[in-house]
């Protein structure tokens, strides 16, 4: 079983190497093959599908970056689970949830909850991100909901 400190490093790498750098080799190193990625509006059920999601989001959001501003304060972990508070910045340039690229610079925050296998691989990440805030910033509320 991994230590809390090792799991905190994996959480930071999940945000920085996988999400910000789109380094898909790190997906194979950090995630269990049966990894689950659960959002309030979607459930991605394996590692390969998750790689496609990362690639898709990098096409829709230019310079997609997940910031963990306070390594000490914003990441919490024990031997089997963890959580991270993050801030995402990017430019919305491609279709996302039926909203065409708006060329708007966006910034939202969110929290992710991690579970680790006995071998120390990430088996599940549940994400609560500010979809409402993102929709407001890219004009999605007016476009999709008020039309």
């Amino acid at each position: 079983m991994a230590t809390a400190q090792e799991n905190e490093k994996k959480i930071l790498s999940f945000f920085r190497d996988i999400w910000s750098e789109a380094n898909l080799d790190v997906v194979d190193q950090l995630l269990d093959p049966d990894f689950n990625f659960i959002l309030s509006f979607a459930h991605i059920k394996d590692r390969e599908s998750f790689k496609k999601l990362v690639q898709f989001n990098h096409q829709a959001f230019e310079k997609l970056t997940y910031h963990v501003d306070d390594e000490e304060g914003d990441v919490v972990a024990d031997e089997t689970k963890g959580a991270g508070f993050w801030r995402m910045t990017s430019k919305h340039v491609g279709m996302w949830r039926n909203i065409p690229g708006s060329n708007k610079e966006v910034e939202i925050t969110g929290l992710s909850y991690f579970k680790f296998s006995p071998e120390g691989l990430i088996t599940e990440v549940r994400v609560h991100n500010d979809v409402m805030g993102l929709m407001q910033q890219i004009g999605g509320i007016e476009l999709v909901y008020a039309s």
């Binding site: 508070f85 910034e107 939202i108 925050t109 969110g110 500010d130 409402m132 805030g133 407001q136």
Partner: peptide, 8 residues
Amino acid sequence: FHFPGGQA
């Protein structure tokens, strides 16, 4: 509090 910007 640290609320997300879009929180109702």
